[in-house]
Design a protein around this nucleic acid. Structure first.
Lengths: 179, 179
DNA sequence: ATAAAATGTTGATCTGCACCAAGATTTTCT
DNA sequence: AGAAAATCTTGGTGCAGATCAACATTTTAT
């Protein structure tokens, strides 16, 4: 994903504004239109849906990554997901108005956003494939190898939800698997 | 997704070339970089991955929709998926070279592609949520209500694979559920 | 520092659905 | 039209993993 020219970079940088969220604070509620694109300076966040009384965790965002409900933000349509701060979070955000202006004004930015979005799509397809074909243990192992650090970072019940398995099963795999 | 101006529309239209595929023909092989973006004039296609000896069906494309392995195409990276014609297919395609030139030359096209990609991401997130939280029967019902026509159009074993359930289970649900 | 809340562990059941297999039906090809 | 291939159906069986529950541990808040 090529770097942006200086001029674009400056225009972009000027649109970010700092925000903080407390632990457990809900950043965006399902049903609303996502107003902001976020960049995480510190903290961990969780994107999830409610299905009946169950939660389905779609993804986590971390220090150094973008955050927000991307589809709702870019399409300015109501989202079916919640965004929540798992830890106290220090973020930058940009309003849709600014975002839209920037993408219209600078084709390089428009392109950069497109490629970022495709990269997100690519990652989601990869996980989708795993959900379709892996057993609980296979999903668990994959998580361990791909991102072992999350074990210390994120409560296991959310990791279980992310894998689509029961928290109790997750705990059992934890003792079984690595021996 | 706003319409394109006339001039862009003409430039775009000039880049499409017709191709045909036979039933069961593999259009793109996993491991390769997707060279083309497709538009389906007639037929049904299936995008799937191989995981061990199991197939995971990610999505179907139909008459009137775009097709191809979108992430591999846009990022020009090797794909982990296969694209296959389920029925004899009549398609238009555009090379990556032309695609890239068009997006660089016309910001409206670049933007239009971005929004199309986000829409795809949005749909995939929706399905992802269902995979995480639905039982076999819930996924089956959802398929029936969302796209009942596919029952006549696509062999049930592929629909089962798309839902992540066993073909035998799909068949049993078919007799159980609608009564 | 201490109480309270949240999270994690572990064992005992129970069940949804994968798996297997054989026969029936439908679709495709020549 | 007829043979061959592909797909669908249906019953039986087994197990991975959900669910339940009680206790242990860790984390958060005051």
């Amino acid at each position: 994903m090529m770097p942006l020219p200086d001029h674009e970079w400056e225009a972009l940088a000027a649109c970010w504004h700092p925000v903080q969220f407390k632990r457990k604070e809900v950043i965006t509620v399902a049903g609303e239109v996502e107003k902001y694109l976020y960049f995480v300076n510190a903290g961990v966040q969780r994107l999830f849906c409610l299905e009946g009384d169950k939660e389905a965790t779609l993804l986590f965002t971390y220090t150094g990554s973008f955050s927000g409900i991307m589809d709702s933000f870019q399409l300015q349509q109501p989202s079916s997901a919640y965004l929540e701060a798992l830890t106290a979070s220090d973020m930058l955000r940009m309003s849709y108005t600014d975002f839209d202006r920037l993408t219209l004004q600078y084709p390089t930015i428009e392109r950069w956003v497109r490629l970022g979005t495709v990269a997100a799509l690519s990652g989601l397809l990869e996980r989708h494939k795993e959900l379709l074909s892996f057993t609980a243990e296979q999903k668990f192992r994959k998580l361990l190898t791909r991102s072992p650090h999350v074990l210390q970072l994120i409560p296991h019940k959310y990791l279980a939800s992310y894998l689509g398995i029961d928290p109790a099963t997750f705990s059992k795999l934890l003792s079984t698997v690595k021996l």
